[in-house]
Amino acid sequence: MANTTGPDYALEARGIGKQFGSFWAVKDVHLRIPRGSIHALIGPNGAGKTTCFNLLTKTLQPSTGQIILNGEDISGLRTSDVAKRGMVRSFQISAIFADMTVLENVRVALQSAHGRAFRFLSPISSIRGLDTRARELLADVGLADAETAKAADLSYGKKRALEIATTLALDPQVMLLDEPTAGMGHEDIEPITQLIRKVSAGRTIVIVEHNLSVVSTLSDRITVLQAGQVLMEGTYPEVSADERVIAAYMGGVEDAH
């Protein structure tokens, strides 16, 4: 009874809720994300996906409930502490360091794992040792030839890839991706979907996504949110066939096909 999480669930939400004023954006949400799976959070606009995501990543503090990462209660921790425990989030708007080069972007993340971040009297050359690893990570996401480019000058799809490389620099066990294909054209969506599939090996991934074809390609299980609460959970075929889900989307599911 005391340890219901066990080692099988990487991430678990027990009745989490978030209240803004008198409004409950998310209420009594339970999630169990098995280790090594890709889990999607979907729902119509205003369903509380983003709030729920921000609670899981500790960007927002939950009003109620508990969040359990690898059996440890992280409800009271902040994002930076959670990152040190192996769970790293991405952002809807590409979270890159625009004025820095592509290589520097990844190296900043590597500094988090390797310390040395407070050395204000050492020259940059003291962290050149991290460049090798940074280049490996860039090669993994297909940015090997862009390391000296300014991050701001990358195309939208490549910014996403850079963000993923930066996240991977922390070698997270759990990755939370906030709408990784938001605002992308068709030509960019396919490579990013492939990339997420590739980096998911040996990791647990939670993804908030609007694009249902991406969701169907990637996810093992899907949780549908509506009005801040869990409407249902299941595989893509189960979810897409459910009448309540179709009603909630009011034809939105058809649009995606």
Binding site: I96, F97, A98, T166
Partner: peptide
Amino acid sequence: KAIRDNEPRVESLG
């Protein structure tokens, strides 16, 4: 410089 460019991201990296 990373904080100047994107503070929430820096926090999310630990």
